Amino acid sequence: MSAKKAAAVGKATAGKDDETTTAGKDATGKAAAKKPAGAGVAVGKPESRTALVRRARRINRELAEIYPYAHPELDFENPFQLVIATVLSAQTTDLRVNQTTPALFAEYPTPEDLAAADPEKVEEILRPTGFFRAKTRSVIGLSKALVEEFGGEVPGRLEDLVKLPGVGRKTAFVVLGNAFGRPGITVDTHFQRLVRRWRWTDETEPDKIETAVGALFPKSEWTMLSHHVIFHGRRICHARKPACGACPVAPLCPAYGEGETDPEKAKKLLKYEKGGFPGQRLNPPQAYLDAGGRPAPPLGAG
């Protein structure tokens, strides 16, 4: 997909073999490519394994051009900060965690410091993240385990990470993929929602989703695949009202039409969640393109 095509995030551009039934206009007022009635996928008809793999990989390629800067949206400087931030992100937003962790890490910069911390003081710092008492127990317990079992270092193996308090497979893969460069699929709520909408799998359990989706892609792509899907879920393919009419992968989506299909109305549903502006609505060209017409990171992205 070219930079010009990436500019049309607000347009669901159909492939040459896709049937089209409705049309809209892009942000410049020009006629947009028509929207596919079935999003280019025959709903209700069986899809061969080969066709599924090709469609899944094409979706990932499209998202890679729209979100070339995709990355963990938690701020961290080392594996310890990442594992703590990921544990704290449960039941809250990454933005809230990023607003909270600077004070936490300034006071307790190492596992040894946090392991010896007064729980009441930690609770006060973590209060804005919600469930602060349980999270305090987890991060202090996690820090103690790092000190006592791993010499104060975050382990780089899945089987060790999941033994730490508050760390499940999702958190472990975030850490492995982004702190150690070891491929992993992060099955969070966004990932689960999108891969089921795209009919990559019918599984509902995270570990089974991880296995099913992982089989569609080379292992080397797993970490960035997770970022692409999660970015898309946060910005366009929302849980309650997906912005179908502003979705760049609509031609490949069996669930096209579950959300708003009118291009202009769909653009108003786009969300921006980085840099202190949660939920800010943006026009696609400003949201995704730099001055040269190339996809660009949102404000605040590293």
Results as ranks from 00 to 15, higher is better:
residue 73 E to S: 03
residue 102 P to K: 08
residue 229 V to P: 05
residue 204 T to Q: 11
residue 167 V to L: 09
residue 65 E to Y: 09
residue 61 R to A: 11
residue 135 K to T: 14
residue 52 L to W: 06
residue 81 Q to R: 07
residue 188 D to A: 00
residue 14 A to R: 02
residue 115 A to E: 13
residue 167 V to W: 00
residue 280 Q to I: 10
residue 179 A to N: 08
residue 44 G to S: 04
residue 31 A to H: 01
residue 35 K to T: 14
residue 148 E to R: 07
residue 67 Y to R: 08
residue 239 A to K: 12
residue 108 Y to E: 01
residue 137 R to E: 14
residue 190 H to R: 08
residue 28 T to R: 05
residue 82 L to K: 13
residue 145 A to L: 04
residue 228 H to G: 01
residue 218 P to H: 03
residue 139 V to F: 04
residue 144 K to T: 14
residue 184 G to Y: 05
residue 289 L to M: 14
residue 36 P to C: 07
residue 37 A to Y: 15
residue 176 L to Q: 06
residue 233 G to V: 08
residue 239 A to S: 09
residue 156 G to T: 04
residue 129 T to G: 07
residue 181 G to E: 01
residue 113 D to R: 15
residue 1 M to D: 01
residue 203 E to V: 08
residue 212 A to V: 06
residue 128 P to Y: 09
residue 24 G to A: 13
residue 244 C to T: 00
residue 276 G to C: 11
residue 99 Q to L: 11
residue 190 H to A: 07
residue 292 G to A: 10
residue 34 K to R: 04
residue 298 P to E: 05
residue 10 G to D: 14
residue 98 N to P: 10
residue 197 R to C: 02
residue 244 C to Q: 01
residue 171 T to A: 10
residue 205 E to P: 12
residue 281 R to W: 12
residue 300 G to H: 00
residue 214 G to L: 10
residue 145 A to D: 08
residue 56 A to K: 04
residue 284 P to Q: 05
residue 59 I to V: 14
residue 166 G to T: 09
residue 83 V to G: 04
residue 136 T to E: 12
residue 169 R to K: 11
residue 67 Y to S: 04
residue 257 G to A: 15
residue 218 P to G: 05
residue 174 V to K: 06
residue 252 L to H: 03
residue 245 G to P: 02
residue 21 T to G: 14
residue 85 A to H: 02
